[in-house]
């Protein structure tokens, strides 16, 4: 499994980890049934507290992207693709729009326009 963090995003590390998993799912690099790196291993590798990794994994679980099982680790769920890709698209939209100088209100207005 290959995940790509994005330090340039300025997000806290746990959010970078969650975003990296969402991106991998959205790009099809990771599919249902795949196992994420064990939280302890990932924490040791990145030299961070294990809770940083677990926070990212819990966010992903709440979004129904992964399933967390004691002793079995974090496994990508069926249907994770839609869950992750929508989140991923939202994140990409915010990033793209911000880079082009749009304000928060303008982005929200853009999204609302799509509904009308």
């Amino acid at each position: 499994m290959l995940l790509k963090l994005d330090p340039a995003s300025g997000l806290p590390l746990y959010a970078q980890i969650a975003a990296a998993v969402r991106r991998a799912v959205a790009d099809g690099d990771v599919v249902a049934g795949d196992r994420l790196p064990a939280a302890r291993d990932l924490a040791l590798t990145l030299d961070v507290n294990m809770h940083t990794v677990l926070r990212a994994y819990k966010d992903l679980r709440d979004e129904q992207v992964i399933e967390l099982r004691r002793g079995r680790g974090a496994i990508v769920r069926e249907g994770s693709l839609s869950a992750a890709s929508v989140r991923h698209l939202a994140a990409a939209l915010v990033q793209e729009a911000t880079q082009r100088g749009l304000s928060r209100d303008e982005i929200v207005a853009l999204v609302e326009e799509e509904f009308s």
């Binding site: 790196p37 291993d41 590798t45």
Partner: peptide, 23 residues
Amino acid sequence: VRVTVSGERLVVSLGWLGYPSWR
């Protein structure tokens, strides 16, 4: 056995419990 690689180091861990492990 599991191996995890990031920018600075790699971590190796054994067995179902992931223990022992080393960097």
